[in-house]
Simulated scan of single mutants.
Amino acid sequence: MAEACISAGICGFETTVSVEDLGDYQFKLKFITKCPNIPKMAADIETVNVMDELFKKGESKVLNAAVKHLPHVSCPVPSGTLKALEVTAGMALPKDASITIKK
């Protein structure tokens, strides 16, 4: 199991996504957040196939649900979700990622 804690930025919402390996390439996603939009996205992606998410372009349920439900295309929650999925599947080592904005 892996968990990603994502600070979305100026909106002030924080989201924790945990990923559980169910076996046979299936993974369960669980989101904890106060953002009103993430639960809508989460309802479409309770379980995902890791191979589809990471290797079949255009077939990511995570990205498709984000496009459908999130008002901001720049929201980092979908990316953080996919990184946590990679780590849980053993396809990446756990390492923090970050975005630093300077003006």
Rank of each mutant, 00 (worst) to 15 (best):
S60N: 09
M51I: 09
K103V: 15
D52N: 15
C11Y: 13
K40R: 08
Q26I: 10
E46F: 12
T100H: 10
I10H: 15
V67N: 12
A8V: 15
A84G: 02
K56P: 00
K30W: 00
V77R: 04
E3P: 10
A42V: 03
G9V: 07
F31H: 13
L22G: 05
D96W: 05
T33Y: 05
A43G: 07
V50I: 09
A66W: 04
L85Q: 07
K40D: 03
V73I: 05
K103G: 13
I45D: 00
N49S: 05
C5R: 12
P76R: 07
L93G: 08
F55S: 11
K68T: 10
S74W: 04
A92T: 02
M91F: 15
S79Q: 09
L82D: 02
F31Q: 10
A92N: 12
D21H: 07
P78A: 01
T88Y: 01
D96G: 07
C75E: 03
Q26H: 12
V62C: 04
D44W: 09
V73D: 06
F55A: 13
I10Y: 15
L54C: 09
I38N: 04
V73S: 11
T16C: 03
F27V: 05
S98I: 07
A89S: 02
K68R: 14
L63R: 10
S98H: 07
A97E: 10
T81V: 09
T15D: 01
D24E: 10
E53Q: 06
N49D: 14
I99W: 03
E53Y: 13
C35R: 05
V87G: 01
L93Q: 13
S79R: 10
I99F: 06
L82W: 09
K57V: 11
E3L: 15
P78Y: 04
V87T: 03
D52C: 14
L29P: 00
D21N: 15
G80I: 04
L85Y: 06
K56E: 01
C35N: 06
A92Q: 12
T33W: 08
S7G: 03
A4W: 08
P39Q: 14
K40T: 01
G9F: 08
F13T: 05
V17Y: 02
V19W: 01
S60Q: 09
K30S: 14
E3F: 07
A97R: 14
I99Q: 02
G12I: 03
A84D: 03
K83A: 13
S74N: 09
M51T: 06
K68S: 11
S18P: 01
K30V: 03
K83P: 00
M91C: 03
L22V: 03
K68I: 05
A89M: 02
S79G: 14
K28R: 15
M51S: 04
A84R: 04
L22S: 06
V87P: 00
E53V: 06
N37M: 05
S98N: 08
I45E: 00
D24F: 02
V50G: 01
N37G: 01
P39H: 11
D52Y: 15
P39N: 12
K103P: 13
V77E: 12
I6V: 09
P94G: 04
G80Q: 06
